[in-house]
């Protein structure tokens, strides 16, 4: 007996609606989308659920039997299940040093004109990088040598840092992970760490050449945060 294609189509639609609902409910969407595009998840949940309901309504009203599922259509429907399988396969996937070596250098956010942090000690990775080349921003944000900062990031393994330092970084996202860019700050830790180790660093800023370096006073290994990516302030 053949499979009614409408039931298979409806099933895929329902699975996607459930997937978006789970992303919304659990907050797991933060692994895939930036804070500015999080609205896509509730929007997608509602629209997909409505589409599933409309389709179910159409199915119930139909006066004749539906088309049989062909091999071609079945393959397309299975293709639509691949992203769901990918999420199940690695539910806690995160970008790290490998992605940092493949992505750009995060300089694009420098031109986005992020507003200054509410207080200097809240300075983030991006604020510190912006302050390196923008004296007006540095003055406005109060970012200067001696400022105590607190940063949580992963060891990126970048070699583009002053001698004797390791870079810790976070990915910044505009819309989704496809546009994620690493932004790193060198830390004078007095020792080396394995790539991708998450570090909680407290220290004071020092100027070394054109870069700000955090002179680490307290450096402890940390767990990866539930929201591994940052977004910029506008």
């Amino acid at each position: 007996m053949s499979v009614d294609a409408r039931i298979a189509r409806g099933g895929v639609l329902v699975l996607w609606a459930i997937f978006f609902g789970v992303l919304w409910e659990t907050g797991a969407s933060a692994r895939y989308l930036g804070s500015r595009t999080q609205w896509i998840v509730p929007f997608g949940t509602v629209v997909l659920a409505l589409a599933a309901l409309v389709y179910a309504y159409g199915y119930l009203r139909a006066r004749r039997g539906g088309p049989a599922l062909t091999l071609r259509e079945a393959s397309g429907l299975f293709a639509l299940l691949v992203p769901l399988a990918a999420v199940l396969l690695v539910p806690h996937a995160a970008l790290g040093s490998f992605a940092a070596s493949r992505k750009g250098n995060g300089l694009h956010f420098l031109s986005a004109g992020q507003s200054a942090p509410s207080k200097p000690s809240d300075a983030s990775f991006l604020d510190i990088r912006m302050a390196e080349g923008d004296t007006a921003f540095a003055a406005q944000a109060g970012i200067k040598p001696g400022l105590r900062v607190h940063l949580l990031g992963f060891v990126s393994g970048s070699s583009d840092v002053p001698r004797g330092t390791v870079e810790i970084a976070r990915f910044y996202i505009a819309c989704c992970v496809a546009d994620a860019q690493p932004v790193g700050v060198p830390v004078d830790a007095g020792r080396t760490f394995a790539k991708d180790t998450w570090l909680d660093v407290t220290g004071s800023l020092e100027r070394r050449g054109r870069r700000f370096v955090v002179k680490g006073e307290r450096i402890v290994a940390a767990k990866e945060p539930s929201q591994p990516y940052l977004s910029f302030r506008t």
Binding site: W16, F20, L23, S29, R31, Y32, L33, T37, I40, V41, F43, G44, V47, L48, P83, A86, V87, L89, V90, A93, A94, L95, G96, F98, A99, R102, C175, C176, V177, A178
Partner: peptide, 16 residues
């Protein structure tokens, strides 16, 4: 992980 994340994020963003 990089592949899976970029892949799924593009799909999640585009499907709605």
């Amino acid at each position: 992980q990089t592949f899976l994340l970029v892949f799924t994020s593009i799909v999640i963003e585009a499907l709605p």
